[in-house]
Each structure stands twice: as structure tokens, then as C-alpha cells.
Nucleic acid binder design. Structure first.
Lengths: 249, 249
DNA sequence: GCCACTATTATCGTATACGATTTCGTACAT
DNA sequence: ATGTACGAAATCGTATACGATAATAGTGGC
């Protein structure tokens, strides 16, 4: 059966936000969207409230909805949140992965590698999602899984409109994927998996921060036995964006 | 000004779920709730969709909404998710806490201690929330903060209906609070704070699991220098509820 | 020329109405 | 007795309509 009007509205609006047709700050007028969809305002309202709950649009009583400002900080905050959640999800899923999952993930990573040569960032990005979904998909905690899913949703909505890729990062990323797979194959303890998965994402985050001239996110997890990252000293300059230091005079 | 009807509906329904007036599985009929509120079904729909987004109610097309089943697993999954998120939030907020925050938190913890003697679990629970809010409230990542808030919301909605407290846990909890405050006062590195905050909640989770005869959650973080917990060995019996072992024959 | 105040307009919030869909009970056939 | 087909009732989904609210423009006074 055809999806409900409110579902259609939801998908349309999300698409337009993701594709950049509605840029941040764009005013979402119920009537206009309803007209575009050929339906009344009621289902559109519902769709917008759903998008609000996911953080894609901001809503104000008696004023209306606008596409949420995805400035740098919001993007980075989402990335940081994902690092935490996806790390946990991957750790929880790790004991459940079988050989097939790992070889499949390895295959995807090979594909990603080939995308590097072919300069196909679109496909690279899609494969990246697929790779990680494969790894955390079996996470037995559906709540965490749901939050990770939403996080990726937000990311997709933002990436195209504001952010591009960091030069060297893609290649590193592929290497880290292999490292993570190595750990999984070796049956490494859960917390080391979590550390590797989280730090993988934190590295991406910090690549962005470095380009912006900001200090790195402090949320690394110490790898219990192996190479610790350089960011886990006690006194990095606090980052106003992500650590929000009190700048008391 | 009076809150909007849809806001009123939202609060009413949430209250009824939290207080247990609507128990899990209860069928939420738009018309009935609308009548009870003296409004039409439209704002009630909106409220229910919001509650759906927060995981408090389940919704099915053309069928209706029911209060989400809060069986043991859901409760435990939420608790596990909170352990991860709140750990991260507390870690991120740690560098921003000043002396006032810490003494205030210490004071709240003294209050909790007195609640122990007075057998006042209501108040104890409220103080517990206040204590942790004080610690993670300054977390500069609003997204994480939001997720933590929602998590506590879900907890409040569930606790009363299904779960009570674990006997010895409250007293341990107070002690762990003091330990956490000690770390904060000493300016301990971020990841150690995260470990302590997460493990505090994981301990609660595992107290429940122990009562239920289930193996503990594996999501502990290794404390880099001090007393590791006993649950971080490599091969705990996997927990069907939280780790979801593949029971292949 | 600039500020305060009013009128206008665009848009939101919600009530009502009605078609669409599911669910449940009943009758019938096997 | 059990399963199936049909019909009635309950409930949902959405269109339309209209009052309420806030943004905006226009007017007058200083």
C-alpha cells in the first residue's frame, strides 16, 4: 500500500534537507509543503514534529519550523556523540560476529580502497556506512542501535550541505578499518574493541578539528595494552567548541 | 500563556505512563484521550507521535498506539545505554566543574545518605537524579545531553511500573558517588572520569542482572591505574539479554 | 528623522467532518 | 467443532474551516 501522507511528507522533507534543497535556516511553511505534496497541512505537521525529534528542524510555537542550523559545532557534536555510541554498539556486537561477517566487512573495505584510487567519494561514503553497519548491526541493545541509526541520519542530512572530506583522512580510515577487523578476528576483549571503534571515529572528528585549527576531542579511550594516542595527556588546551571551557577572566 | 493542547496532551499521557495509570500494553485511543482532555484528536496524535519518538509508546499504522512494553530487557537496555551516554557526558563536563558544583554535589550525596536511614526511596531517587545532573549538566555537547535527558525520561516512565530497587545497591551507590567526587576534585584525566561514571551505572545494571540470575554487562571501562572490576575478564558467560549470544546448535 | 502604536497579513493551532482501514462478532458451510 | 465469509462497529488518517497568534507594514506623533 502507498505510504501514508505523513510518511510521504516526512521523506520528502528529509530528502530536501539532505540534498541541500532546503538549506539551514530555510523556513518550512506548512501550507507550501502541503500544496507541493497535494495534501493538507495536518500530515505535514506530523512529519515536521518527527523531524524535530530527530534534530533536523527547529520548531517554535506559533512561529513555525526552520531547517536546523548545522553549523560546525552541531556537526562536530553529532560526530562526537556517534563516536561514543558506535563504539559501544560495536563492542556489544563484537562477540556475535561470525567469520562471514568479518570477511564481508573485509571485502567492503577492499572496495573502499578501490574507491580511493577512483576518486569516488559518493560511493566511498556509502560503503563506509555499510562497513560499520555490518559491524555494529548485531548489537543486541536495540536502543543503542536506534540512536546510532539516528546519528547517521543527522550526519547524512548535514554532510552534503556543509562539510566535505578531510584530505588524508580517507586513506587512514581504510587502514583503521583493517586494524579493527584484525582485533575482531583475534577475539580481543570487549573494551579494546570499543576503544578502537570509538577512536576510529574520534580520529575523523579530530581531523576536522585540526583543519579548523581547534584542539582535539578528549574522548579517546586508552587502549589497555597497545599504542595510546597522543591526545590523552592530562592538559590539552580545552576546545571551546567541544569542551566549552569556562573562560572566566 | 497556557501551553498548547498538544503540549498538555503530551504531559498528561507521559504522566499517566510514568505514574503507572497506563500500564505497558495499554491501548491509547485517540478519541478517549481527546475527550478526557476536552480537545480534539489532532493534538493528541501529535503528542503520541512525540512519545513514540522517545520510545515510550509503540505506534502502528491504522491500528493505534499502545504503551511500550517495558519488560526487563528494555529496562536493562535503557540502563546500559545510559551508562555509556552518561559516562561520556560526565567526562566531558568534568573539566568545567568548579568548586561550588562539587561541594553542592557532595551535599546532595550527604542528603542521599540520610535518606538511606530514613527509608525514603522516593526522595533518594530524586536526589540521585539531581546529583548526576549536577555532574553532567555542564557537558558542552548538547546532543549527548539531550540523549541522556531522554534516557532518564524513559527510566522514570519504567521504573515505577516494573522495577524496584536492589537491596544493597543504594548504599554502594552513595559510596561510589563519593569516589567519583574524589576523582573530580583531584583533577583526574577525562577517561578515568568516564570509566568511573560509566561503571557506577553499570554496577547498578549488573546488580539487577545478578538478582535476575543473569551474567553482567560487558561494557565496563578498564580503569587505567586503579582497581579493575571483576567483570572484565575475557570470557564471562554471554548474557542472552544484553549480549544476545547466537545460540547456534 | 525616529519612535510608538495600530492595522494588516501570513501562518499556526485545533475543531469538526468524513472516507478508509482494521478488528471483531456472527452466521454459514464443511 | 472448526474454519471461513461477511457485515458492523470502532478507530484511524486527512481534508476543510476558522479562530488565535505573531511578524510586518503603515500611520501618526514627537
Amino acid at each position: 500500500m502507498a505510504p501514508s501522507k505523513s510518511e510521504q511528507a516526512y521523506e520528502l522533507i528529509q530528502d530536501k534537507i539532505v540534498s541541500g534543497a532546503y538549506s539551514p535556516g530555510y523556513r518550512l511553511v506548512l501550507g507550501s509543503i502541503a500544496a507541493e505534496l497535494g495534501c493538507s497541512t495536518v500530515p505535514v505537521r506530523e512529519a515536521i514534529r518527527r523531524l524535530e525529534a530527530e534534530g533536523l528542524v527547529a520548531f517554535e510555537r506559533n512561529v513555525g519550523a526552520t531547517v536546523a542550523n548545522v553549523d560546525a559545532t552541531l556537526y562536530l557534536h553529532t560526530l562526537q556523540t556517534l563516536s561514543v555510541l558506535e563504539g559501544a554498539a560495536t563492542a556489544l556486537a563484537a562477540p556475535l560476529l561470525d567469520a562471514d561477517d568479518l570477511t564481508e566487512a573485509r571485502r567492503i573495505n577492499r572496495d573502499m580502497e578501490s574507491c580511493l584510487q577512483a576518486f569516488d567519494p559518493q560511493r566511498f561514503s556509502r560503503l563506509n556506512v555499510a562497513f560499520h553497519e555490518r559491524l555494529y548491526g548485531l548489537c543486541p541493545n536495540p536502543h543503542i542501535l536506534d540512536l546510532v541509526q539516528r546519528g547517521w541520519n543527522r550526519m547524512r542530512a548535514m554532510r552534503s550541505s556543509t562539510f566535505s572530506t578531510v584530505p588524508g583522512r580517507a586513506r587512514e580510515s581504510v587502514a583503521e578499518h583493517d586494524g579493527l577487523l584484525d582485533l575482531l578476528e583475534a577475539g580481543t576483549p570487549v573494551h579494546a574493541i570499543e576503544a578502537a571503534a570509538r577512536d576510529h571515529r574520534t580520529n575523523t572528528l579530530n581531523a576536522y578539528l585540526a583543519v579548523a585549527g581547534l584542539p582535539p576531542s578528549p574522548l579517546y579511550l586508552p587502549l589497555p595494552d597497545a599504542t595510546p594516542h597522543d591526545a590523552d595527556t592530562t592538559d590539552p588546551t580545552p576546545d571551546p567548541a567541544l569542551r566549552g571551557r569556562k573562560d572566566t577572566p
